[in-house]
Design a protein around this nucleic acid. Structure first.
Lengths: 335, 335
DNA sequence: CTGAAAGCGCTTACAG
DNA sequence: CTGAAAGCGCTTACAG
């Protein structure tokens, strides 16, 4: 196999099969009319030449690329990889190619990120916390269908899906209070994140309604390290909390390690810790984290449906879905 | 903002700027000759129309897409996401777009995976354990430059880079024996994986050379769950091992949890556990895993250089790099 | 059912 | 430096 320099084109196949190039094209387009005999000869010639239609050329003529821009931030926590995995597999199984667009929660999209959009993606899906609100506005101005995961935005041609964060926070507040906790602390994620804003304020509101004060608040950035660091700080004072709700699982893991290993506390006897997301690791025996399940599979499935719908009709009215999360009781909280 | 249905093309810009379409094109191509005045008018018109060259059309004419196929498997362990993250960022920073190709270690690449290659990727990089050897051969037959990470293959036009697994395994064997361990067990990963074959056989060989027997062997699949399960089995017998080398960190975490939580053993007093990869989590206090550092950053940097070189000269002789790993001593092993 | 031809939006010799 | 034109590899009316 000399690794032929040039791939075969439809013209090559046509020549070999003794038909027109149009006939070749028809054999590779759904529902085009070709006689059985022609199709047979074309397919055989194509096979011999290892011919496959050039998707770039096809995209140029059809003005559809089948490429979906996927805006994502760092894959550095345990949650993002799972989401990304599920999303890209789902896309592929529906015959769409995910083209990566690297975001940065702090910035608008830079040039190298925007370059991906020059490939004429049919739509772009923005994943949780991957970019700033300003970047989302920039994307909206592009006139490309936008699907937002993890934040709610009201605009034409923009569909959003976002776990019901307020409900999740409320479930935690209620369970904690019902179990008798009265010295409750909250460890928030990146303050600019939509999820953090919803979770933080709903948690406060729910506690207030229940007549239980929030006695301490930490400010993390959704990372393990920030969870570890802030927990050390929150537990340093004299009036130590008896429960800590963390804005995501990664911080909760940091909190667990800080409480148990660094401070020598017993969890959940001395301190209840609750996370948010329910990543696979939350079930590992070393963590056994009580947490709120962010229904990723369900969210991705809905997102894919929203995408098909939007692709079929760019002018369809925007939709916003808020799938409900669930409290998962494990060993890290006395509930 | 009515979300204009049609993006501006070079012809639109040319009309607005009062120049030819060729002139517009030249303003967007590196090193083309355009007068300062023309360039100014074109750029201004382009700005007003939010014009950016259509990368699909450009790809068709230049026969270069700047798209790099990235073949990857599941992102379900802690190692793959970090690798993927580093690789795709590196690609993007060099102006190349990563196009995902989903692999499956057990299968050849299926149709939906191959569909990505119809986009005329300039090269494909295959990441560790993402596909079967048969799939790699299929990719080689395509005549597209191939870069292999995590396995060594000798062939024209195929470059490989792969951590020096035998060295890593030897480092572990030597350190364990030097520290006095004499009842050593090995927990392997997926038997069909290139890395497993190298690590497993080098570990055996090194122990044999040192005159220390391998008293037990487990067969996992690189997952946390398999590490947990196999460790329970390995530690069940009467002549319990005093050291366990795991084929990757994920299994080592499972082993740690099994030993400590399920079996109530002390690590490293009762049992030394060593992993392979040094994922970020290995440094978390709950694990404090002694492990072999797989130099991902270095590997990705080399991979990107290999890519540029291969793109510049498709006929360059194939290269094979084997960067050395490093033993990282933490708390999970008595060394 | 089939072929000739136009056109998708660019780049790049080729003349000037 | 600049424009007219060919060509990249397809799809899709349009005639037949």
């Amino acid at each position: 196999m000399a690794g032929e320099r040039r791939r075969a084109t439809a013209v090559d196949v046509a020549r070999l099969a003794g038909v027109s190039q149009s006939a070749v094209s028809r054999c590779f387009t759904e529902g085009a009319s070709v006689s059985a005999e022609t199709r047979g000869r074309v397919l055989e010639a194509a096979r011999r030449l290892s011919y496959r239609p050039n998707a770039i050329a096809r995209s140029l003529t059809t003005r559809r690329t089948n490429l979906i821009g996927v805006v994502m931030g760092d894959l550095d926590g345990p949650f993002q990889p799972y989401l990304f995995e599920t999303l890209t597999r789902g896309l592929a199984s529906r015959g769409r190619q995910p083209l990566l667009v690297r975001g940065d929660p702090a910035d608008a999209l830079d040039g190298t990120a925007m370059a991906a959009l020059d490939y004429q993606v049919d739509a772009v899906v923005v994943t949780a916390g991957s970019v700033s609100p300003a970047a989302v506005r920039g994307l909206m101005a592009l006139g490309v269908p936008l699907l937002l995961y993890g934040r709610a935005v009201e605009a034409d041609g923009v569909d959003s899906i976002c776990c019901d964060n307020p409900l999740g926070a409320r479930l935690v507040a209620q369970a904690l209070v019902a179990a008798g906790h009265r010295r409750i602390a909250y460890l928030g994620g990146r303050p600019t994140a939509f999820s953090e804003q919803e979770r933080g304020s709903a948690f406060r509101a729910a506690l207030a309604e229940l007549g239980v004060p929030l006695i301490a608040v930490g400010e993390g950035d959704y990372s393990y390290d920030s969870g570890h660091r802030e927990t050390l700080r929150l537990l340093a004072g004299p009036d130590r909390p008896d429960a800590l709700f963390c804005g995501n699982d990664a911080m909760a893991f940091g909190a667990l390690d800080a409480a148990r290993t660094a401070l020598g506390l017993r969890v959940p006897e001395d301190l209840s810790i609750v996370g948010f997301d329910d990543v696979p690791m939350a079930g590992w025996p070393s963590f056994s984290l009580t947490t709120i399940r962010n229904p990723v599979d369900e969210i991705v499935a809905m997102l894919l449906d929203m995408l098909e719908r939007r692709l079929a009709d760019p002018d369809a009215p925007p939709v916003l879905h808020r799938p409900p999360p669930l409290l998962v009781r494990r060993g890290s909280a006395r509930l």
